[in-house]
Amino acid sequence: MEIRGRCWKFGDNIPTDKIVRTDMIFKPWSEILKHVLESCNPEFPAKVKPGDIVVAGKHFGQSSGRAIAAKAMKQTKVGCIIAESFARTFYRNGFEIGMPLLECPGITAQVSDGDILRVEIESGKIVNEKTGGEFEAKPTPPFLLDMLKAGGLIAMADRLAGEG
């Protein structure tokens, strides 16, 4: 699975509350999407395009375990999220809803906002077309790649529970 898109860069320790504000969680997607990550970059909600790539620092998606933060990122149609590291609930939720995530320590120093990145999810290969830099993300566990291929957890639940 290859993704090519424009890079949006964010800092360390971004909590789920900044991805989707608490007062937004029961609103329709159309409302939520106007505010995703807005307090970190006010341009993001209006200008993010399908296939763009979010690059974040350490511990992205910390705090609440609500899948709505991962779901909102998927709704923006970004192609994938690369972070130095993820909060474990965000990481888990991402794959469960079929959203590819890659962990690549050191990546934030190698890319800037607006660079065009090319990412190969299975191998974890990341290319910055602007600088020519090439990076290797940590390998994704095969179990999670499987889940991604199935389209998320619910699609493979029977098989997982041994009842499929």
Partner: peptide, 21 residues
């Protein structure tokens, strides 16, 4: 441990199970 909505709805409620690393 805390899991997300899809784990609870997708495997815990229908099968009484969840995946863990």
């Amino acid at each position: 441990t805390g899991l997300g909505n899809d784990s609870h709805a997708g495997t815990v409620m229908p099968f009484g199970k969840a995946w863990f690393r």
